[in-house]
Amino acid sequence: MRELVIGTRKSHLAMTQSNWVRSQLLEHHPYLSIELEKIITKGDKVLDVTLSKVGGKGLFVKEIEQALLDEQIDLAVHSLKDMPAELPTGLIIGCVPIREDVRDCFLSRDGLTLEELPTGSVVGTSSLRRQAQILAIRPDLVVEPIRGNIDTRIAKLRDGKFDAIILAVSGLKRLNLCDEISEYLSTASMLPAVGQGALAIECREEDHEIRKLLSAIHDHATGNAVRAERAFLQAIEGSCHLPVAGFGVWENNKVQLTGLVASPTGKSVIKGIEIGTDPVAVGKKLAQKLMEQGAKEILAMV
């Protein structure tokens, strides 16, 4: 019996996602013995400032990736949207399971929708991507940063510190908290983060046994869609420092990728679509197109 150790953050959502991956692997490989190893990341410790000011996405993965490189764990489960565009040498995304709902959602204390929220209401989000798109729709609202896990953010909303908050639908679904949602935001009005709703199972590149085990739970359509999104992100040099969004759909052997670059104020928004059979080429082409349409100037100002 092969004994595997999955590295994970210790939050309720991270543990739920890692336990789901464990169950999927055991369903295909019942002879395995799989344990979870909780790892505290810098992103879990630094909760009083926005991610863009303290290092961006890598805050949630660096310690876990080091444990992988040190062979303390065999694989790691991440929310794909937390993964930087470039991975450390020696590590790869071994598989991407089927994607959950990609949308963002709106939670308000009084059950109001984004359109119904009174002028001057305070909306909590630490995502520049969400901030830019909210202000593009409702420039009369006030956006304030909010950190912490899902339960913490919902508690802050209930305590009256915010009139509304924005969260990913996928996390609420995985935690059975969809009753908290006041409004589902369409991808047309709120383009999701690159990789949103998808999990990334990271492993060592040379560990071919693990890679073979992971292939059983890889979803081809999700994998191709997020490859296009991540190629777009890498070409645009996107991170938590920049309001960048990307969403791909793989159908009929083609990916349709929608991308967005915006100013944090929401006053400038560049958006486009690219379609093709090569996910990476599509991502790079869309990035180039948006840069030529003015995204380069927006990014230079941020």
Rank of each mutant, 00 (worst) to 15 (best):
I236S: 04
Q293N: 07
T50S: 11
C240N: 08
D44W: 08
A262E: 10
A168D: 07
S170H: 01
F60A: 13
E251T: 05
V123P: 00
I34N: 08
E37H: 09
I236W: 01
K271F: 04
S18E: 14
D278G: 00
L185G: 04
V269P: 00
L51P: 04
K38G: 05
A287C: 05
P139G: 08
A245D: 10
I34W: 05
A193K: 03
R9C: 12
L117T: 00
Q288H: 15
P264D: 07
R103K: 03
S108Y: 03
L117I: 07
W20P: 01
L157K: 04
S11I: 13
G197A: 13
G94P: 06
G55T: 08
G94Q: 14
A281N: 06
I73P: 00
I166C: 08
I93R: 07
V49G: 06
V269H: 11
L157Q: 04
T152G: 05
T125E: 03
V54K: 13
D44S: 12
E297F: 10
T265L: 09
K81R: 15
A200T: 09
S189T: 13
K45A: 04
R138N: 02
V269S: 14
I150P: 01
G7T: 08
P84C: 10
K81P: 01
E144C: 12
S186W: 07
T16H: 13
A235V: 05
S182N: 06
V49M: 01
